[in-house]
Amino acid sequence: MPQLCAYLSFNGDCAEAMAFYAKVLDAKLEALITFGQMPDGEPVPPEHADKIMHAYLVHPDFALMAGDTPPGVPFDGMKGVMMALTYPEVADAERVFNALAQGGTVQMPLGATFWADTFGMLTDRFGTAWAVNGGPKEMGPK
């Protein structure tokens, strides 16, 4: 069965972002490979050698991959995508939301909705958009 995994692009701060996400999301950073560590192949400009070619973060419930943009590829930010997290407990959603919001921008503060006891949206300091749910409510037919 295939697995779907988000892959985020960064502009030189992938290692910092993924270490932060590992801490906040209680996940393990299993891979952090730089362009300079790639096996023989394309030459890498020296100024790009320490940038991240591939990062892999693992949690029992999800995985997240990321990398800095390759040499010669312009970075135009992350657009049109949002990472969504759902926690069974409101307290967990609040903890993660508040941690991700540090240095970022909150678009919608946490608050009650018809689908969850709490929900909020933010863009973190690395430019990643997040939607955080806590205490999901039953959404069956009426």
Score class of each variant (00 low, 15 high):
residue 2 P to T: 15
residue 4 L to I: 15
residue 6 A to E: 06
residue 6 A to P: 15
residue 8 L to M: 02
residue 12 G to T: 13
residue 12 G to C: 09
residue 13 D to K: 14
residue 14 C to W: 01
residue 15 A to H: 00
residue 15 A to W: 01
residue 16 E to Y: 02
residue 16 E to V: 11
residue 16 E to Q: 15
residue 17 A to F: 08
residue 18 M to L: 03
residue 20 F to N: 05
residue 24 V to W: 07
residue 24 V to S: 08
residue 25 L to P: 01
residue 27 A to M: 04
residue 28 K to A: 13
residue 30 E to W: 06
residue 33 I to E: 11
residue 33 I to W: 12
residue 34 T to Y: 05
residue 34 T to M: 04
residue 38 M to S: 09
residue 38 M to E: 13
residue 39 P to C: 12
residue 39 P to D: 08
residue 39 P to N: 10
residue 40 D to N: 14
residue 41 G to H: 10
residue 43 P to T: 02
residue 43 P to R: 05
residue 44 V to S: 10
residue 48 H to F: 15
residue 53 M to A: 14
residue 55 A to C: 02
residue 56 Y to A: 12
residue 56 Y to C: 06
residue 59 H to I: 05
residue 64 L to G: 04
residue 64 L to Y: 01
residue 67 G to Y: 02
residue 67 G to N: 08
residue 68 D to H: 04
residue 68 D to L: 10
residue 70 P to C: 07
residue 71 P to K: 11
residue 72 G to C: 13
residue 78 M to C: 08
residue 79 K to Q: 14
residue 79 K to R: 13
residue 79 K to W: 03
residue 80 G to K: 08
residue 81 V to I: 13
residue 81 V to G: 05
residue 82 M to D: 08
residue 83 M to W: 04
residue 85 L to V: 04
residue 85 L to S: 11
residue 86 T to K: 03
residue 87 Y to N: 01
residue 88 P to A: 08
residue 88 P to Q: 08
residue 88 P to H: 04
residue 88 P to C: 00
residue 88 P to W: 00
residue 88 P to Y: 00
residue 89 E to S: 00
residue 90 V to H: 02
residue 90 V to D: 08
residue 92 D to F: 04
residue 92 D to N: 05
residue 93 A to Q: 05
residue 95 R to H: 06
residue 95 R to G: 11
residue 95 R to A: 09
residue 96 V to K: 04
residue 102 Q to W: 13
residue 105 T to C: 01
residue 107 Q to P: 09
residue 108 M to Q: 15
residue 109 P to S: 13
residue 109 P to L: 14
residue 110 L to G: 07
residue 110 L to Q: 09
residue 110 L to E: 06
residue 111 G to P: 12
residue 111 G to M: 14
residue 113 T to K: 11
residue 115 W to G: 01
residue 116 A to N: 00
residue 118 T to N: 04
residue 118 T to H: 06
residue 118 T to G: 02
residue 120 G to H: 08
residue 120 G to C: 09
residue 122 L to S: 13
residue 122 L to T: 11
residue 124 D to I: 12
residue 124 D to Y: 10
residue 125 R to S: 13
